[in-house]
């Protein structure tokens, strides 16, 4: 057995005349936490649905644990695969406890210790019917179900939507802990900060095609800082400044730019400026960095 947990090869899915994804290929190794990022309609869910065997690929192959996966036999890999999505439908007439117990039986697991650990982390309301639960509590139940069988591979589609900030934090801690245990995680998320926070690798999808596959740490470096300086004097140039915008105001010349160089050089440059009226330095958000990436890839 190789250390490739998931292999997607030239995956294409067409719905009638529309091609949702085209020639999507990637491999995920054991223990990787991979963020699958793209705008709405980029093809994230179609790729995930194909991986899980919910839909049948028009072309291409999916291998999970070295076995070719199709809608007919996908259930075999699900014995070692957990899944949760942000909009996951759960059986509303069951209580959270009943649903988790039913799901646990399908994995043929009698030991509840892992389930109890997860209940302790998320503290969901298990005695209530799922139909009466808030969205956040339903999401907790879905996440517990995804991790309770200690799967080797966890596929998550917008997993933390609906969770409050505290629970979102607990979820990220769980992902880190799972990574230490050697679990492989493939997750799409709209919260890009959490992708950067926990993922080791990011796959960027745009208009149904993979446009970039890179280590997550590159994203924070590429993000850089936004620097804004207001001065009445002419300013010296700064190496590494990009996207410079200059505006004359009553307070002086207002200059803003993106800086991707070293912090020490920026500090030295700011220290040497005469009679500053105002200045600010802020980290670029991951969203800005991704937008930047998107623009670069499309150009």
């Amino acid at each position: 057995m190789t250390n490739i947990v998931l292999r997607v090869e030239n995956l294409t899915k067409r719905f009638g005349k529309t091609t949702a994804i085209r020639d999507v290929s990637f491999k995920i190794k054991t223990g990787e936490v991979v963020g699958f990022v793209g705008l709405n309609g980029a093809g994230k869910s179609t790729t995930i649905n194909s991986i899980l065997g919910f839909i049948c690929p028009s072309d291409g192959e999916i291998e999970i644990f070295d076995q070719l996966s199709t809608p007919t036999n996908a259930f075999k890999s699900h014995q070692q695969l957990g899944f949760a999505s942000g909009d996951m439908a759960l059986f509303e007439s069951l209580t959270g406890e009943q649903y988790l117990s039913f799901a646990l039986h399908q994995y043929k697991i009698r030991d509840r210790s892992r389930l109890d650990e997860l209940i302790d982390i998320f503290k969901p309301e298990l005695a209530k019917k799922i139909g009466d639960l808030s969205r956040g509590n339903r999401q907790k139940v879905a996440l517990i179900a995804a991790f309770m069988a200690s799967p080797k591979l966890v596929v998550l589609d917008e997993p933390s939507s609906g969770l409050d900030p505290l629970m979102q934090q607990r979820f990220l801690e769980l992902v880190r802990a799972e990574q230490e245990r050697g679990t492989t995680i493939f997750m799409s998320s709209h919260y890009l900060n959490e992708v950067v926070d926990v993922c080791t690798r990011i796959i960027l999808i745009r208009s149904g095609q993979i446009v970039r596959d890179f280590p997550a740490k590159e994203l924070s470096i590429e993000g850089g800082k936004t620097v804004r300086v207001v001065s009445r004097h002419k300013l010296p140039g700064l190496k590494g400044a990009e996207d410079v915008k200059i505006e004359k105001t009553a307070r002086g010349t207002d200059i803003s730019f993106i800086y991707k160089g070293s912090t020490a050089s920026l500090q030295a440059w700011l220290g040497g400026l005469p009679q500053l009226v105002d200045f600010s330095v802020s980290d670029n958000t991951v969203e800005m960095a991704l937008e930047d990436l998107y623009e670069k890839e499309s150009s």
Binding site: T72, A74, F75, H78, F83, M88, A89, F91, Q106, Y107
Partner: peptide
């Protein structure tokens, strides 16, 4: 329609079962 079939299919349950 309500997405429950996908929830079941995400478990180790074959479509035949």
């Amino acid at each position: 329609d309500r997405g429950l079939l996908r929830t079941l299919s995400a478990l180790p349950l074959s479509r035949g079962r």
